[in-house]
Design a protein around this nucleic acid. Structure first.
Lengths: 224, 224
DNA sequence: CGTACCTTTGATGTGAATCAAGAGTAGTGG
DNA sequence: CCACTACTCTTGATTCACATCAAAGGTACG
C-alpha cells in the first residue's frame, strides 16, 4: 500500500502527507471475487472501505430474502463512514458485483484521526453531508416520481448532461441490478428504457445507453 | 437567549461553556405562526435551526405542487446541519406545523466552530451519521414494507416498545400530515389504523394511539 | 347552532408487480 | 466451428395493492 494509491481516492486526495502516512499504516488491501460478501447487515464496523477497482453494491434484504440495491459504489469511492463514526452495526449488506480490490482502513484509526485532525474531520463531515443529500434525492425520487422519471434522473446523474453531443453511459452492473437500484423490477426497467428510446431521447445498447436528446431527458428528469 | 436554553437542546447539551457562549452570541430566537414557512427548498443556508417548542415539518414538493412530508422535527431537535456544512441550497422546505419557537444559529459561526473545536465537529459528525441511519431505515421501509408495517415501525419508533404495559402515543400533527410522513394518503392511514386496531394491537383515539399488544406490533414491525 | 375542516368508509380506477413465454447472448464441450 | 446449455433480457397477459374519487360522519371553532 502506497500513499500514491490512497491519493487516487478523492476522499483522501487532499489530506496532508502526515495524515496519509498514518492512514496507509492502518490500511490493508483485499481482493474480492464476484458476488463475494464484504459486510453483512448487522456486522460491527471494523473498517472504513475504499473501492480501488470493481463495483460494490450496498443492499438491504426483505424478510423473504429478496434484496433491494440501495447504492452502487464504484472505483475511487468510499463507504461505511457513518457506521464507523457511530459504532453502530451496518444497516446494509455490501458485496462485490464484479471482482474488486478494496482498502480496509481500521476503524479505530479513523475514529482517532477524526478527533485529532480538523482537516480529516472536515472531510468526513462533507462526505456525510453529501451522502445525506444524495439520500434525500433518492427518497424524493421514490416518493414522488414515476419509474421513467427515476431512470431519466439516473441517466442525467450519470453524466448524460455533461456533453452536449452524444454522451454514452455504460452500465456498471447487469440490468437487473440497475433495476433494483432504481426501485423497479427488471421488466419495468426494460419497459422504461424502451419508452425513452421510442421517444427518441436515447438509444439502448446491450450494456450502455447513448444519449441522443439530453434536453428531453433533463426535461423529464425535472432539472431546469 | 441563555446558555441554559441552549443546553435544553440535546445536540448542544454536552458542549463546554466556552463554546456555548460563542453559540449563544451567534443565535437569535424567532417565533413562527402555525403554517409559517421557515425555509424554502433552494434557499441558501444562513443558519442551523433548533426547535425550542412546537413542531416543524420538512417536506418536498412535486411539480404539481403537492407536498410529501419527509420528517417531523420536534422540541429539542435540530435541522439544517448538512446544508450549512455543505453550503448547498436546502433540499427541502421547512414549515411550522404548530406555533413554534426556533433558534437560528448563524451558519458562519457553525462553520467556523466546526473547524476549530474537535468536540463540536464530533457532535456534528454524530448527528449527521444518526440522520443518515434514520434515512436509510426510511428508505428501506419505503422500498420493502407495506403501509401497515411502516405504521407499525413508526409506532414502535415513537416508543410503543418502551413500557410493557399500555403505552400511549400521541400524534404530534394532524393525521393527514402523519400519513404523508409515512408515505400514504390519509385514507390509507385510516385503514391501516383500523387494521391494527381490529387485530387488537392498538386502540385508536382522536389524537393518540393506545398500545395494547406491543409484541404484536413489534412482530409486524420486524424487530426481533 | 352552524360552518368549515378533518377523518372515516365505500366504490372505482390504474400503475406497476407478478406470472409466463419467448428472444437474444454468452460461455462449454464435442 | 458449431451445437448445447444457461443466463439475461424483453414482451405480453393478468393480478393486485394502493390511489383516487365520492360522500357521509365527526369534531372544533366562531
Amino acid at each position: 500500500m502506497s500513499c500514491q494509491e490512497l491519493r487516487s481516492v478523492p476522499f483522501f486526495a487532499e489530506l496532508p502527507p502526515a495524515l496519509l502516512n498514518e492512514l496507509v499504516a492502518a490500511a490493508r488491501e483485499r481482493h474480492y471475487e464476484k458476488e463475494e460478501l464484504i459486510v453483512l447487515k448487522g456486522d460491527r464496523p471494523t473498517a472504513l472501505y475504499a473501492v480501488l477497482s470493481g463495483v460494490v453494491k450496498l443492499a438491504c434484504q426483505s424478510p423473504a430474502g429478496e434484496e433491494r440495491v440501495i447504492d452502487l459504489v464504484g472505483c475511487g469511492e468510499v463507504f461505511g463512514e457513518s457506521a464507523v463514526l457511530l459504532g453502530n452495526p451496518f444497516p446494509y449488506l455490501a458485496a462485490a458485483i464484479s471482482p474488486a480490490r478494496l482498502l480496509h482502513i481500521d476503524a479505530e484509526t479513523v475514529l482517532a484521526l477524526s478527533g485529532r485532525s480538523a482537516q480529516f474531520a472536515k472531510r468526513l463531515m462533507i462526505k456525510l453531508s453529501t451522502r445525506l443529500y444524495a439520500h434525500m434525492r433518492d427518497l424524493e425520487d421514490f416518493r414522488l416520481h414515476p419509474p421513467v422519471r427515476r431512470l431519466a434522473n439516473y441517466l442525467v446523474g450519470q453524466g448524460a448532461a455533461s456533453s452536449r453531443g452524444e454522451a454514452v453511459i455504460s452500465f456498471c452492473a447487469p440490468k437487473h441490478v440497475i433495476a433494483s437500484r432504481l426501485g423497479m423490477t427488471p421488466e419495468a426497467l426494460s419497459r422504461c428504457l424502451r419508452e425513452l428510446s421510442d421517444s427518441g431521447a436515447i438509444a439502448v445498447g446491450v450494456d450502455h445507453v447513448r444519449v441522443l436528446d439530453a434536453g428531453c431527458l433533463q426535461g423529464l428528469s425535472g432539472a431546469q
